[in-house]
Amino acid sequence: MDDCIIIGAGPAGLTAAIYLARYHLRIRMFDSGSSRAAMIPCTHNHAGYPEGISGKALLARMHEQARRYGAHCIPRRVTAIHPEDAGFRVATEDAEYRTRSVLLATGVVNHRPKGLLPDVHDPALERGLLRYCPVCDGYEVTDKRVGVIGTSDHGMREALFLRGFTRDVTLIAPDAAHDLDSGCAKALDEAGVARIDGPCGGWAIEGDRLALDTASGRMRFDSVYPAMGSRIRSELAVSAGARADPSGCLEVDDHQRTSVPGLFAAGDVVKGLDQISHAMGEAGVAATTIRNMLDRQQPIRR
């Protein structure tokens, strides 16, 4: 029986693996290969890398560090978590494993605008023409022309956040006319944020800008931010009995414990800032709590 199975090998999962391996615990880490961090072309927001670092390079370094302590990633998708009296039974597509504890670090998937196909999406993302995290990279669009795809309160809040970096912000409805109450409209007007109805379409990279069609004609931006929410990948924990909020974020206590004893969660699958540093901090808390919990059950001795 493993001491802990980690599901997900993004910044949270890998941080937990490093901690738990260094605690001399028997761990196993599964990953489906779809970490959102791998999509980051270059982050300048992560402390310790003044020249910036790509998400793939950061994950590669973390994998290397985990391997030094015997923590290896198994490229396999987990299909179910089954609580049992002595821990859990974790099922993958071709086998089952028993473990005393589970840490879920499966993250989220951003919703993309309709019609934004990979042949435009991926190059635009790589060039910084398409961005998903204004907390991470709002600085990079300082004084640039920025489009925000979204509406209602969520779209308004993201547009206003970006207004702190540039005067030229346009909020574009993703499907049809905007869905903005009077308070949202007033806040946007006071901030000088333009509003354009959708639908969006005709996505293309034109020169150094990302272009799209709107109800007001074709528009071009230095960067576009989809503000359309995300899908929280919490299904495994919810199916195992863990509580989640209406958006799907797992409910955890101050030590990253879910409502299912022995099942922990860290990173973007938990409600929070959706930042690498925050996910890593949560993983450190979870890993140490797991170690202490297991030690109380059976003292860890060398």
Results as ranks from 00 to 15, higher is better:
residue 179 D to L: 12
residue 225 Y to T: 07
residue 255 H to N: 07
residue 44 H to N: 13
residue 198 G to D: 07
residue 136 C to W: 05
residue 230 S to Y: 13
residue 257 R to I: 04
residue 84 E to I: 05
residue 184 C to W: 05
residue 282 E to K: 09
residue 78 V to A: 08
residue 132 Y to N: 02
residue 279 A to G: 12
residue 67 R to P: 00
residue 152 S to A: 15
residue 287 A to K: 11
residue 11 P to M: 08
residue 124 A to V: 09
residue 188 L to G: 07
residue 270 V to G: 10
residue 130 L to W: 05
residue 261 P to K: 01
residue 130 L to I: 11
residue 82 H to D: 13
residue 44 H to K: 12
residue 168 D to R: 15
residue 296 R to F: 08
residue 264 F to P: 00
residue 266 A to V: 00
residue 181 D to T: 02
residue 11 P to W: 04
residue 145 R to N: 14
residue 120 V to S: 11
residue 121 H to G: 02
residue 65 Q to A: 09
residue 14 L to T: 07
residue 113 P to R: 07
residue 295 D to R: 11
residue 39 M to T: 14
residue 218 R to P: 00
residue 99 T to A: 15
residue 127 R to M: 14
residue 158 E to I: 11
residue 192 G to Y: 01
residue 44 H to C: 02
residue 34 S to Y: 00
residue 129 L to V: 05
residue 31 D to L: 08
residue 244 A to Y: 02
residue 99 T to F: 06
residue 65 Q to G: 05
residue 292 N to K: 14
residue 1 M to E: 14
residue 21 A to R: 14
residue 286 A to E: 04
residue 246 P to V: 10
residue 39 M to P: 02
residue 283 A to H: 09
residue 166 T to L: 10
residue 209 R to C: 05
residue 49 Y to Q: 08
residue 184 C to Y: 04
residue 241 G to C: 09
residue 228 M to A: 05
residue 46 H to W: 15
residue 235 E to L: 10
residue 122 D to A: 12
residue 114 K to R: 14
residue 88 F to I: 02
residue 159 A to P: 01
residue 31 D to V: 06
residue 28 R to A: 13
residue 141 V to T: 15
residue 147 G to Y: 03
residue 249 C to N: 14
residue 111 H to C: 04
residue 162 L to W: 10
residue 138 G to W: 00
residue 129 L to E: 02
residue 218 R to W: 10
residue 10 G to R: 04
residue 79 T to K: 11
residue 259 S to P: 12
residue 263 L to H: 02
residue 259 S to W: 11
residue 117 L to S: 12
residue 39 M to D: 12
residue 224 V to N: 09
residue 231 R to K: 11
residue 195 R to I: 13
residue 100 R to T: 01
residue 28 R to C: 10
